[in-house]
Write a protein that binds this DNA or RNA. Sequence first.
RNA 1: GUGAGUAUAGCGUAGCUGGUUAACGCGCCAGUUUGUGGCACUGGAGACCCUGGGUUCGAAUCCCAGUACUCACC
Length: 377
Amino acid sequence: MKPAITYELIHKCKQTGARRGVIHTPHGDIQTPVFMPVGTQATVKSMTPDELKNEIDAKIILANTYHLYLRPGEEVIKEAGGLHKFMNWDRAILTDSGGFQVFSLSGLRKITEDGVEFRSHLDGRRIVFTPESVMHTENILGSDIMMAFDECCPYPSTYDYTKKSMERTTRWAQRCKAAHERPEEQGLFGIIQGGFYKDLRERSARDLIKLDLPGYAIGGISVGEPKEEFLEMLNFTAPLMPEDKPRYLMGVGSPDYLIEATMAGIDMCDCVLPTRIARNGTAMTWNGKVVVRNATYEKDWGPLDPECDCYTCRNYSRAYIRHLVKCKEILGVRLLSIHNLYFLTKLMERVRMEIENDNLGNFRKEFYKKYGYDTKE
RNA sequence: GUGAGUAUAGCGUAGCUGGUUAACGCGCCAGUUUGUGGCACUGGAGACCCUGGGUUCGAAUCCCAGUACUCACC
């Protein structure tokens, strides 16, 4: 049986160890490292699939099992012929399992060995997610990469709680693998947990790797901890992951975190950040963050980012975008989303090139200086 | 012209049985945002309470006059 998802390592940066590779999926190849835009409810907020392809050239996007299970529900997506057809996206899709909602909706759920009972955030009705039910839903969604059902632990959590949670997540991953109905069409990724305890991370990785899944993710970091702790866990956990499979760091999307992740040997990241800050009037640029909502841009006739050639930057001024944002016009959100997604896509394209040239370390230094980050080694 | 009413932050209003830093919404200014419970959240600036006089220990609040606006009637 040929697995749905395979990874090909092309080059390792001699300066940093970062990986340059390709992920093969049933809906196309993905050059890595890659940033994946998030489209929780089967839409990257405010973007048409056409724009994602032609303006941004995203190769893969995320969707969310919990949200789509609630609305529109499995029946609708099944009848549509799967998520790709439903949303008119013919490139790759990765579905998150609802594990993050175990964390983000912590006030609305109860965890047992069997699974998680949520109270729907929409109408309060009781719904039960088990590893088996989540696999069933993700099979119906038909994503190229399905994430195993896990628990994303809050920060901070006690050692004892984190250990129990991690062990349960591992058992759930085993159940997910057993319940997965179409391994030849959809790849199931395991999620390494273990909070901020190295021995737990090590155990989690070791036990999940035994399942021989086609890819692995680091979950449960970037949940509000200080940056040093994030880096510590990232750099400890990434090397535990298989060399011959995609390595996915979940929930990371600021430029510095993306670069640090890449240097740690991560291949895939996703984040709501670019689209979320777009909705609140902020752009990421090669010269740092630009809160275009601010008054200083009232009569700024230049583009958001002078070094960017995205649709937004080719055609619109900061003054105009600020106007749209201040008026809460939809176009403001759209133009900023296009730019931010394009920016991160281009950043990763650049990162890939620097890896090939064994120059990522130098690039990091330069980029941080320009962007306004500390370059503490 | 007569009568009645209203005048409080840029705008719309609350406070008016007199009592320490005059409240709220919008707007304005800024910060946050990292597997999306979000066009969200958190802060901040901004008012000689229309003017003048009076009563009182004390007035946005009560009284008088003026001014402006609103409505009704002639």
